[in-house]
Design a binder for these strands. Structure first.
Lengths: 197, 197
DNA sequence: ACCATTCGTTAACACTGTAAAGCACAACCG
DNA sequence: CGGTTGTGCTTTACAGTGTTAACGAATGGT
């Protein structure tokens, strides 16, 4: 009961994607993906270097999705945009834990030497965050500083919060949004110019 | 050139521990650990449920070490203790990345129903952190609130910072301490009572 | 001396990722 | 039309993995 379509890198990655979502990262094998496509495992090697390369393809498409979710955010102020992006990141993580677990298997490279849309999606997602931080600094709502440093710090804290929520610490789910809010809001508060009182 | 000692759970876990440090988590196999002990793989099953259980043993011993590093911290104030614990956590992570990567394979359980030293080391490490937070709140240097929530938030942010540093983002190593400081100091700043100015 | 138990071994199963060789079919060229 | 070339997949194979079942040797007790 396998449907045999024309093989391609995209098809393979798409199938791996859905299998990761449905069965978890550890349960996905190259042979399994091939079988789901009605094909034997070595056939995939014409389109994919190895298993890691296949997963890299899935990760790339995920960063693309994350970036898209950033771009739909409507915010009143630059600072609010920073906060909403952090929330969007956690939302993304909680929606598909297996995918979130995977995207950091590959070290993103944030050295921006070339320009344009051919940058890896991870880099573009990061740049989007950094822009929001920069705007909030120009705005005067965040204290001046290195935007790269601050956006990485925000990302790190957000990532940690998401990881902690996913670790299922038997805390009861009502804690989830509170932990996230505590991390993000207080970090932003610490980074902001003091509002006396 | 294998030295064959009396087998035990502790011996197995210790050997797995050093092999993880030396060769990385992915390179460690049950068969490999057995061979290093001069024994065949099925022999381990008398002392260990399965591979995951073996790793769980290593993780437990690591939390014990982390806890020990917390207990040697000398701080002038409760708030300073909170900051130093966060730094100790990151120091621990950077010292042995493979071990840090592993300890969160298992969801720690923070429900404290029993008392005393028979609690899992992860729980005791967390409680140590929560106590410091509580002291800082009693002290008046942290705004009042749920100590559990705040200490989890701090842990989450710290964990995220460590993960980000370990991801080797091609950022140049001078960024490492800066990112950490940005996350921790600003989060603590956000959690503190404002000091007008 | 025999029995029982403990502690390890060997053999086997069902997987995994990956490489080499082979085979079937379509396209092209004379 | 017949032969050649090449593409796309399969079969086969290898070296691993975790794990289970059956077997064996040594040890201690009665």
């Amino acid at each position: 009961m396998v449907e045999r379509v024309q093989l391609s890198r995209e098809i393979i990655i798409a199938r791996a994607h859905t299998m990761i979502v449905e069965q978890g990262l550890d349960a996905v094998s190259l042979r399994g993906v091939a079988a789901a496509l009605g094909v034997t495992a070595p056939a995939l090697y014409a389109y994919v270097d190895d298993k890691l390369d296949m997963l890299r393809g899935v990760a790339e498409s995920e960063f693309e999705r994350l970036l898209a979710s950033f771009e739909t955010i409507q915010a009143d102020s630059p600072l609010e945009r920073v906060r909403l992006q952090a929330h969007a990141y956690v939302q993304y993580a909680l929606a598909d834990p297996a995918l979130f677990q995977m995207i950091f298997l590959f070290r993103p490279n944030f050295e921006v030497h070339s320009e344009g849309d051919d940058l890896p999606a991870a880099t573009r997602a990061y740049l989007t965050g950094a822009q929001a931080v920069e705007a909030a600094m120009a705005d005067g709502s965040l204290r001046p500083g290195d935007p790269m440093l601050v956006s990485l710090a925000l990302w790190a804290a957000t990532h940690g919060a998401a990881s902690m929520l996913l670790a299922q610490l038997n805390l009861g789910p009502e804690y989830e949004s509170q932990i996230l809010a505590t991390v993000i809001d207080n970090l932003v508060r610490g980074l902001s110019v003091p509002l006396d009182s």
